[in-house]
């Protein structure tokens, strides 16, 4: 119960700070919007190849960009932890009775809400350039939910790395060397049928790909492929729980090192 109250207190802190700098969301959207509009326009005719199962690259690309954007939002989260560490704010929390898990989940709640806003903006832009969601509101809802879970997974992992390595450079390293390759080892930009075999195999284990699959689970049909949504969704939930647990444990690793 205390943990829950503390989670809301910590989430409140981050949400309030976010509300003071809402333009941050515009910066974080620059890259996904470039992919959505320019990359989408450049490769517009790629859907003429067999294997895409849709006549519109915007329809294919938009769920991928939403998931990619969520992945990176999570990946950068460790920067917040490093700056709290540098300022001594985190040490103050750690010698208080605050629940350790609340320090992580409170931050994840705020970032999750930011991901919801980002996702809805990207989906709106996608629709403007021709994306269609045949599954309707249900498809949008499961896509956004998958995006939030993706943010939670990589956000928690980024916090864990931040607590162990404690340098902003290492967060940048994680983003560059882990998240960018993960993006290309998925079906964000390219249909699985057209990928090299090894990338297709790797992508089956890539949580980013699971989120993309959930977002595309109704490409032409009107109803969602619920068995796909639930199996991939369960995988994302499980990973989010494990990652949050790891991040909470990382406080112990930090405290043992000082």
């Amino acid at each position: 119960m205390t943990a829950l109250i503390h989670t809301l207190d910590i989430a409140g802190r981050h949400l309030r700070n976010f509300s003071r700098q809402p333009w941050y969301i515009a910066f974080s959207l620059v890259q996904p919007i470039i992919y959505l509009l320019l990359f989408g326009a450049l490769f517009k005719r790629v859907v003429e190849l067999p294997g895409f199962n849709t006549g519109s690259y915007a329809t294919y690309l938009t769920p991928g960009i939403v998931a990619m954007s969520a992945l990176f939002s999570g990946g950068w989260l460790g920067v917040t932890v490093v700056s709290d560490l540098d300022r001594g704010v985190l040490d103050r929390f750690l010698v208080s009775p605050v629940s350790r898990s609340a320090l992580i989940t409170g931050l994840l709640i705020q970032t999750g809400l930011v991901t919801v806003i980002q996702s809805l903006i990207l989906i709106g832009l996608g629709v403007l350039v021709g994306a269609r969601f045949a599954g309707g509101v249900a498809q949008v809802v499961v896509l956004v939910a998958a995006a939030v879970l993706l943010t939670a997974i990589f956000g928690a992992l980024s916090c864990a790395v931040a607590l162990i390595v404690r340098k902003e450079e290492s967060i940048i390293g994680v983003v560059q060397f882990l998240l960018l390759p993960l993006t290309f080892l998925s079906s964000v930009f390219m249909a699985p049928a057209l990928m090299p075999g090894w990338i297709r195999q790797v992508s089956r284990f890539n949580p980013l790909n699971w989120a993309v699959e959930i977002g595309r689970s109704a490409p032409e049909a009107a109803s969602l492929d619920w068995s796909l949504v639930l199996t991939r969704g369960a995988g994302l939930v499980a990973l989010a729980v494990v990652a949050t647990w790891l991040a909470t444990r990382a406080f112990g690793a930090y405290q043992r090192s000082i």
Binding site: D9, R13, R16, R87, G88, D91, R92, S96, V98
Partner: peptide, 25 residues
């Protein structure tokens, strides 16, 4: 505990910093 660094959240007001600290206890 008051550490060597001024461990305040620079993005929150003085009152918000204090209130959050109080709520934790």
């Amino acid at each position: 505990y008051v550490s060597q660094k001024a461990a305040v959240d620079p993005e929150a007001t003085g009152r918000e910093n204090l209130s959050l600290q109080g709520r934790i206890y």
